[in-house]
Design a protein around this nucleic acid. Structure first.
Length: 267
DNA sequence: ATGTCGGGTGTTACCCGA
């Protein structure tokens, strides 16, 4: 089975590209982040026509996560227990954002995750990010306590660069999010709960990234960040036979600012 | 910090978010 994750930065503007990529990449399960649309706006038919079942959650033009699968898609779950809420505007009641979607595909519990961007140190969004990650850790840790053999894949845009080599020049990130110790500790918390980065062993750095800012010619200058990850439970880790980051997909007009990350699972 | 992209709207000029 071939499993992939991709922050597409709008599924409506990227549908052609995602469909073409799916067809030539022979991917069975694709988790998407930043679909940037409501459920009624998601181009489901486009992917159904290619043989994929679709689960999506999106409340507005922000966030939005989905799972596409051609190996079955069941037990869809929007958000995880205890997921923090966020008030979109001053005075509005806090509500869950469209940042987590779980579905069982081919025997694997796949979670498409879009971790909040912390914006700036000291910004309320930074504290929200840490709270969100702590709640995630608590949930996913419990799943393995209940069933140590569960096949779980936590995939998506984590908005964290866990190691200094995961950005092109750590000295430029001295006052930035994504690399702070609390964020890295939050990421390690999920790893310590039993989930390993199954991609890094096949894609060692330095200089290996999954995201390049549209501005400042970051991509041609090879100035990127490794912030998209597939974390697998022990039972999933044992099945991984390969992984890659499809840097080619970042090229050309109409590319997302993130590249797809693909994992091969054996029987 | 923004030489770029997305989305949006009190729309053809700006706003927000990453």
């Amino acid at each position: 089975m071939r499993l992939a994750t991709w922050n597409v930065n709008s599924i409506r503007s990227r549908a052609d590209r995602v469909a073409a990529w799916l067809q030539r990449s022979d991917v069975d399960v694709l988790a998407l982040q930043e679909t940037k649309c409501r459920d009624d706006q998601f181009p489901e038919d486009r992917f159904r026509d290619l043989g994929y079942e679709v689960a999506h959650v999106g409340h507005s033009q922000w966030n939005g996560v989905a799972v596409l699968s051609r190996v079955g898609l069941s037990d869809v779950q929007v958000g995880f227990p205890g997921m923090p809420t966020w008030a979109a505007k001053e005075g509005l009641d806090p509500a869950p954002e469209a940042r987590a979607l779980g579905a069982t595909c081919g025997g694997v519990r796949v979670w498409s995750l879009y971790v909040p961007n912390g914006r700036q140190l000291g910004d309320p969004h930074y504290d929200y990010k840490l709270a969100w990650l702590e709640a995630l850790r608590a949930s996913v840790g419990g799943w393995l306590t209940q069933d140590a053999d569960a096949q779980v894949a936590l995939v998506g845009d984590w908005n964290i660069a866990p190691q200094d080599d995961d950005v092109w020049d750590i000295s430029l990130f001295a006052h930035s999010t994504h690399v702070t110790e609390p964020e890295r500790a939050a990421f390690r918390g999920v790893v310590d709960a039993g989930y390993a980065d199954v991609v890094r062993p096949y894609t060692p750095g330095p200089g290996v990234y999954t995201y390049w800012d549209y501005t400042q010619l970051r991509f041609p200058r090879r100035e990127g960040m490794r912030i998209d990850f597939v974390l697998g439970s022990p039972a999933l880790q044992r099945r991984v036979s390969g992984a890659r980051i499809d840097r080619e997909e970042r090229k050309g007009k109409g590319a997302s600012d993130h590249a797809p990350v693909i994992v091969e699972l054996g029987d």
